[in-house]
Amino acid sequence: MLFEENKERISGLVDQLESKYPGRKKGVFMPNDTHANVLLNILFQKYGKLPETYQIIGFDDSPISREAVIPMSTVGQQISVIANEAMNILSAQMAERKKRRPEPLKEPVHKIIPPILIRRETTV
């Protein structure tokens, strides 16, 4: 999807929120930090600031969330923990295959790595 198309859709979302919830608090969770930044920019262009009626959270803790005109709240995925767990599982499977009578896993291994809410200025 092109940037212009995304910006147009997010701008339409702002218009929709404004008409449906005028003067009310609006919490918006965007699918990633890039989209959250586009929303933040649209609001700045429209109001000259982030209105007190908006709170924005992005997803993925990309550098843009820290470097935006206002640092954005986001959900971090703990990539280093995910990578470490994946390597532990892979190492265990490799060690099992080296055994004289290996017993491969019969079912997939499921690990839950909780995401972290990183609070910044868009959700004060």
Results as ranks from 00 to 15, higher is better:
Leu2Val: 03
Phe3His: 06
Glu5Tyr: 13
Glu5Ile: 09
Glu5Gln: 11
Glu5Gly: 05
Asn6Trp: 04
Lys7Cys: 10
Lys7Val: 07
Lys7Ile: 02
Glu8Tyr: 13
Arg9Ile: 06
Ile10His: 04
Ile10Phe: 06
Ile10Gln: 02
Ser11Cys: 06
Gly12Ala: 08
Leu13Cys: 06
Val14Tyr: 03
Val14Arg: 03
Val14Glu: 03
Val14Pro: 09
Asp15Leu: 09
Gln16Cys: 11
Gln16Met: 12
Leu17Val: 01
Glu18Thr: 01
Ser19Trp: 11
Lys20Arg: 15
Gly23Trp: 07
Arg24Tyr: 05
Lys26Val: 08
Gly27Pro: 07
Gly27Lys: 07
Gly27Ser: 08
Val28Lys: 00
Val28Ser: 03
Phe29Leu: 11
Phe29Asn: 05
Pro31Gly: 01
Asp33Gly: 08
Asp33Arg: 07
His35Arg: 06
Ala36Pro: 07
Ala36Ile: 04
Ala36Cys: 05
Ala36Phe: 07
Asn37Leu: 02
Val38Phe: 14
Leu40Met: 08
Leu40Pro: 07
Asn41His: 13
Asn41Met: 12
Ile42Asn: 01
Phe44Cys: 05
Phe44Pro: 12
Phe44Leu: 13
Gln45Ser: 14
Lys46Trp: 03
Lys46Met: 04
Lys46Ala: 02
Lys46Val: 01
Tyr47Met: 00
Tyr47Asn: 00
Gly48Cys: 06
Lys49Asp: 06
Lys49Gln: 11
Pro51Ala: 02
Pro51Tyr: 00
Thr53Cys: 00
Thr53Pro: 00
Tyr54His: 05
Tyr54Gln: 03
Gln55Cys: 05
Ile56Asp: 00
Ile57Asp: 00
Ile57Trp: 05
Gly58Met: 00
Phe59Gly: 02
Asp60Lys: 00
Asp60Met: 01
Asp61Gln: 10
Ser62Cys: 01
Pro63Gln: 06
Pro63Glu: 09
Pro63Val: 00
Ile64Gln: 01
Ile64Lys: 02
Ile64Ala: 01
Ser65Leu: 10
Ser65Phe: 11
Arg66Cys: 11
Ala68Met: 06
Val69Leu: 15
Val69Met: 15
Ile70Leu: 14
Ile70Gly: 10
Pro71Cys: 04
Ser73Met: 05
Ser73Arg: 01
Ser73Asn: 02
Thr74Pro: 12
Gln77Thr: 04
Gln78Ile: 10
Ile79His: 03
Ser80Arg: 08
Ile82Leu: 10
Ile82Glu: 07
Glu85Pro: 07
Glu85Cys: 12
Ala86Cys: 14
Ala86Phe: 13
Met87Ala: 14
Met87Gln: 12
Asn88Gln: 15
Asn88Val: 13
Asn88Trp: 12
Ile89Ser: 10
Ala92Arg: 14
Gln93Asp: 14
Glu96Pro: 14
Arg97Met: 11
Arg97Glu: 11
Arg97Gln: 10
Lys99Ser: 13
Lys99Met: 14
Lys99Tyr: 11
Arg100Asn: 13
Pro104Met: 05
Pro104Leu: 04
Leu105Val: 02
Leu105Arg: 08
Leu105Tyr: 04
Glu107Tyr: 12
Pro108Trp: 10
Pro108Lys: 07
Pro108Val: 02
His110Trp: 14
Lys111Pro: 14
Ile113His: 09
Pro114Thr: 04
Pro114Gln: 09
Pro115Glu: 04
Pro115Lys: 01
Pro115Trp: 01
Leu117Gly: 08
Ile118Gly: 15
Ile118Glu: 15
Ile118Lys: 13
Ile118Val: 15
Arg119Pro: 10
Glu121Trp: 08
Thr122Val: 07
Thr123Tyr: 03
Thr123Ala: 02
Val124Pro: 10
Val124Ala: 13
Val124Phe: 10
